[in-house]
Simulated scan of single mutants.
Amino acid sequence: MNTPESTVNPAGFTKYKVIMVALAAIIPVAVAILYFLPGVFVIPGLDVKMLPAVNAVLNSLTAMFLVIGYSFIRRKNVAGHRAMMGLAFLLGSVFLLSYVAYHSQVPSTKFGGEGIIKGIYYFILITHILLAAITVGLVLFTLYFALTEQFQKHRRIARWTYPVWLYVSVTGVIVYFMIKPYYL
């Protein structure tokens, strides 16, 4: 049977798979380097004070587009789904660039809360960080399968990508508001 998925030559996209695997590994490592070695890539005079707030807005919008995109595909509106997921991917990419720019210039802010709120904050932060590292690869492969019209594989991985990406986007905003009082 000649379905759209069978007419695509996945072997022809091997170089893109290699690039995505490399990005899925390199991006979390680069972010970890920025976290553990703050100030390594400082650009004198670069003002990044407003980037945490910008990042919170980008994460909020990403979450919004993810939810709208999900609702579109549930109603079989493929064009709407594609548009919303494209916007979520674009905003997520801009967020990542902004996040790296900020953390390349400023050491991580320490949370100053005490008691139960401190435990809640660190639980959210740690799960956010671990899942954010995984999200990069999930998003890239979900996008790859959509672009190469391997829709069965796309659906299979999207079932994992969507909730993880949504969690990371929402918890990114929560972490921002929890740590905002402690920014210098």
Rank of each mutant, 00 (worst) to 15 (best):
I129W: 04
G137I: 02
G69N: 04
M178A: 03
S98W: 03
L90K: 08
P44E: 11
A25E: 12
S93E: 05
A133E: 03
L166Y: 00
F95S: 00
K17S: 14
K15H: 15
L130S: 07
A11C: 10
M20C: 14
Y16G: 13
K49M: 15
G86T: 09
I157G: 05
M20R: 10
I174K: 01
V8R: 14
I126W: 08
A22C: 14
L61E: 01
I73A: 11
H154T: 01
N77Q: 08
P4H: 11
P107W: 07
M50W: 14
A83S: 11
Y183L: 12
A79H: 11
G45K: 11
V21I: 15
K49P: 02
P44H: 12
P38I: 08
S104C: 09
Y102C: 06
V31H: 03
G69M: 01
K76D: 13
T62P: 00
R159M: 11
R156Y: 13
I174M: 05
L66F: 02
L66I: 07
G115N: 08
L61V: 13
F95P: 10
T7N: 15
L23S: 10
A32P: 01
F141W: 06
N59S: 02
A79N: 14
Y167W: 13
F123M: 10
I129Q: 08
A63V: 02
L138D: 04
F145A: 04
I179Q: 02
S169C: 10
Q150P: 06
A83W: 09
